[in-house]
Amino acid sequence: MRSFLTGLVIGVIGLVISFFSQDTDKIIYTLLIIGFIPIIISGFMTGAYVSGDRVRGNYTDSKDFSGRSGRSAKLFVFGLPCVLSAIVISFIV
C-alpha cells in the first residue's frame, strides 16, 4: 500500500507541476522513466523475460520466491501510477 501511495504522490506532483510549467515534455519523460524502470526491474525479478524451464530452475526455494514476488509486486505497483499520470498529462496537454 505504501508503494502505491508513494507512486501516486509522485504522479500527482507531476500532474500539478505540468499545469504550471510550459515544458511538459520533460515532466512526461521523467514520469515515464520513474515508472518504467521499476516495472522493468519487477519483470526481471519475477522471471517474466525468460522461458518456463529457467523460471522453475531459479525458484527452487519457496521462501526466496515469495520474497522476490512480494518485492516485485511493490515495484510494479509503485511504477504504475507514474506511468498512468504521464499518459494523463500527454492527453490533457
Results as ranks from 00 to 15, higher is better:
residue 43 G to D: 00
residue 52 G to W: 13
residue 23 D to G: 01
residue 42 S to Y: 01
residue 67 G to M: 15
residue 91 F to Q: 08
residue 67 G to K: 15
residue 16 V to S: 03
residue 25 D to L: 10
residue 55 V to T: 14
residue 82 C to K: 06
residue 14 G to F: 10
residue 12 V to I: 15
residue 71 R to T: 14
residue 40 I to N: 00
residue 5 L to V: 05
residue 28 I to W: 01
residue 61 D to C: 08
residue 28 I to Y: 01
residue 85 S to I: 03
residue 65 F to L: 12
residue 73 A to W: 11
residue 72 S to R: 02
residue 55 V to F: 09
residue 53 D to Q: 11
residue 24 T to F: 02
residue 92 I to R: 10
residue 92 I to Y: 08
residue 89 I to A: 02
residue 23 D to M: 03
residue 19 F to L: 07
residue 15 L to S: 13
residue 60 T to Y: 06
residue 45 M to A: 07
residue 69 S to H: 11
residue 32 L to K: 10
residue 18 S to L: 04
residue 91 F to E: 09
residue 2 R to V: 08
residue 58 N to R: 15
residue 26 K to L: 10
residue 54 R to G: 05
residue 30 T to A: 13
residue 8 L to H: 03
residue 36 F to K: 05
residue 74 K to P: 00
residue 64 D to H: 15
residue 31 L to W: 05
residue 10 I to P: 05
residue 7 G to A: 06
residue 2 R to D: 08
residue 61 D to Y: 09
residue 3 S to L: 04
residue 66 S to Y: 14
residue 49 Y to W: 11
residue 1 M to S: 14
residue 23 D to Y: 04
residue 9 V to T: 14
residue 72 S to V: 05
residue 55 V to W: 11
residue 1 M to N: 11
residue 74 K to R: 15
residue 40 I to A: 06
residue 45 M to P: 00
residue 54 R to V: 14
residue 14 G to L: 11
residue 44 F to R: 04
residue 32 L to I: 04
residue 6 T to K: 07
residue 92 I to L: 10
residue 20 F to A: 04
residue 35 G to E: 06
residue 40 I to Q: 00
residue 23 D to K: 06
residue 91 F to K: 06
residue 58 N to D: 12
residue 74 K to C: 12
residue 47 G to L: 07
residue 32 L to N: 09
residue 16 V to P: 01
residue 43 G to V: 00
residue 41 I to W: 01
residue 48 A to V: 03
residue 69 S to T: 09
residue 76 F to E: 06
residue 23 D to F: 02
residue 16 V to F: 05
residue 60 T to Q: 10
residue 30 T to E: 00
residue 36 F to D: 00
residue 8 L to M: 08
residue 76 F to V: 08
residue 48 A to Q: 01
residue 10 I to D: 08
residue 56 R to C: 06
residue 82 C to F: 05
residue 37 I to H: 03
residue 49 Y to S: 10
residue 6 T to H: 05
residue 75 L to Q: 07
